[in-house]
Design a protein around this nucleic acid. Structure first.
Lengths: 137, 137
DNA sequence: GGTATCGGTCTCAAAAAGAGACCAGCGCTA
DNA sequence: TAGCGCTGGTCTCTTTTTGAGACCGATACC
């Protein structure tokens, strides 16, 4: 455990949490963050924050997700406790996905980040344009 | 453009923003979110929020990132305008990475999310344990 | 002359994701 | 009654992404 992070006397307690006091690999905060930073996770949470959706509805709502990844991402979100899955015994059976209390709680800071993205996507797009122009030169 | 999202009359403006009014594939907000939701992006931003770091320092600070992914992720963060890369003409040349104003601005909501993760990783761990136990049964 | 540091790139293998066929069970319709 | 579609998935195959590690030139140190 010869990590440098303790010697730095960082004032960012959360950063220390994210590194588990020097242990970057098996860190709980990184574990949680990586669970919600998947390619489709945040989008599905944003969708389900509005109202519960059924499997097929989500598939039509997000046309560019494969059925395989929709199943898998919902499964992960359910495993981590963000999403509740309920099967209704209709014919054919329908499955409804909804946010749990934990999911709604996580939605609050996620919403902040998405708001930031909405306010700043022009800046990011401009930065990319500048970068691409200067690297072509 | 026969998306269902407009018919839903969602009250979540940000969700509409994330879906670009029904266009899920080419949406600016999704574009920005996906740029910062990579496996290593948030961790590197958290590290650089503390202070600037050099390439080798980051590599030692995050031992489980490959040199290839460190290069690539820093490159993407620089392209999106979050990170500034400065080369110092020492022998051998050293390269310092630091957050830009845009990066520090994005750090604010990211920090909120990481704080949430720190406060709730027990709940997530418990949810996983319950889920795994019930799926083995 | 050998070895180490710097910040990378290159190649190859492994893992993850995407595309699309396929499934059972039921309702509808021709 | 034969066909077709809808449900929520799984299975297989291909393509993309990631990881592991060798290699690089220039320089400093011993």
């Amino acid at each position: 455990m010869d990590s440098k992070i303790f010697n730095l006397k960082s004032k960012l307690e959360v950063y220390k949490a994210m590194t588990d006091g020097g242990n970057f690999a098996d860190c709980p905060v990184r574990d949680v963050i990586q669970g919600i930073s998947g390619k489709w996770s945040s989008l599905l949470v944003m969708a389900l924050a509005e109202k519960p959706y059924r499997f097929g509805e989500l598939r039509r709502l997000v046309p560019d997700i494969s059925q395989r990844m929709l199943t898998q991402t919902l499964h992960e979100l359910q495993r981590d406790g963000y999403v509740h899955r309920e099967v209704f015994p209709t014919k054919p059976p329908s499955v409804e996905y909804s946010l749990t209390d934990l999911g709604r709680s996580m939605f609050v800071p996620l919403y902040q980040l998405v708001q930031w993205a909405e306010l700043n996507h022009d800046a990011v797009r401009d930065a990319r344009a500048v970068f691409d122009a200067s690297s072509r030169a």
